[in-house]
Each structure stands twice: as C-alpha cells, then as structure tokens.
Amino acid sequence: MKLLNLGKKIKEKTFKNYIIENKNSFYRIAYKYVRNEQDALDIVQESILKGLSKIDKLENVDCIKPWFYTILINTSIDYTRKSKKYTQIVEKISTDTYIDRDIETDIDIQMALDNLPKEYKTVVMLRYFEDMKISDIAKTLDENINTVKTRLYKALKLLKIEIDE
C-alpha cells in the first residue's frame, strides 16, 4: 500500500512542477479559445483540478505533456460550447506588446485562425504556438499521426486562402 501511495505522490509532485513551469502556455491555449482573460484562467484552473483528480490514470510521468494538453483542450472546447458569453472578438492589441510585428497581419492571422474548424485550429495552435511535435499532438488528440499531418496541411491551406482574401 505504501508503494502505491509513493507512486501517487511522485506523480502529484511531477504534475505540480509541470503546471508551475508551463502555466503561461496553458493560459495562452485557453485564451485562444475564449478570448477572455478571466474565462481562460477559469479553464486553466478547472483543467488543473481535473488533472489532479485523474492523476492515477497517468501511467507514465514522461507522457505528462500530451496527457495534460488533452485535458486542457477538452476543457477549453467544452467551455466554449457551454458558454453563452463566448463571442469571437478581436482582442485589443497593445502596440507595446507587438513592437517588432505587423499588427494588421497579427489581426488577420488571428481572425483566420478563429474561423477554422476546431480540429484544425487545435492542431495549428499546438504545432506553431506551443511548438509541439506531430507525434505529441497525435497523442494529445488521440489521433493517428497521419490524421494530424493531414489536418495541419488542410488548416494551413485554409489559412492561406483566408488571409489572401
């Protein structure tokens, strides 16, 4: 019995450290879905609670990244489905934050990304905003690697069409 408790404690400690080290990434993902600071924080908090309650299901602590991103993305999608407040609004952009970037291009990209179907948007966000490998995205979404590659290719094609218009 002590061995099982020790394993759970190790998982919990690893999970807590992972959350602390990557909290900004989690917030960015949630924010991309809801476009609201408070709602994004709520999603991250709810995801952490879900993760802690399901820590026993994590078989290998080396797989914590795709495991938690799955929880975070599913929580974000559920929140957007259930939320009456959710509307797609282009965020207020501070010129101080984007000194080296073309603001109009950022707005166009964000609007185009918001217009993508959820499965395409998620793949693009994980690949390019979170710098995840295709194999990790496949684990996170519980999809075949070729499916992820196809969705990514299709999403980029749709984004190009959207931005060119």
Rank of each mutant, 00 (worst) to 15 (best):
K2P: 00
K2S: 12
N5Q: 10
K8S: 04
I10L: 11
F15L: 07
N17S: 14
N22I: 14
K23E: 15
N24C: 11
I29S: 09
Y31V: 05
N36I: 00
A40N: 11
I43G: 06
V44T: 12
I48D: 09
L49H: 13
L49F: 07
K50E: 09
L58S: 07
V61C: 08
P66Y: 08
W67Q: 05
F68H: 09
I71C: 06
N74V: 05
K82S: 08
Y86N: 08
T87Q: 11
T87I: 11
E91D: 10
E91C: 02
I93L: 15
I93N: 09
Y98P: 01
E104W: 00
D106C: 03
I107Y: 00
I107E: 01
D108K: 12
D108Y: 02
I109E: 04
I109K: 05
Q110R: 05
A112E: 01
L116W: 00
Y120E: 15
T122Q: 13
V123S: 07
E130Y: 04
K133H: 05
K133D: 12
I134S: 05
S135A: 13
D136G: 00
D136N: 11
I137Q: 06
K139C: 07
T140I: 03
E143N: 04
L152P: 01
K154G: 09
L156F: 06
K160M: 04
E162G: 01
E165W: 03
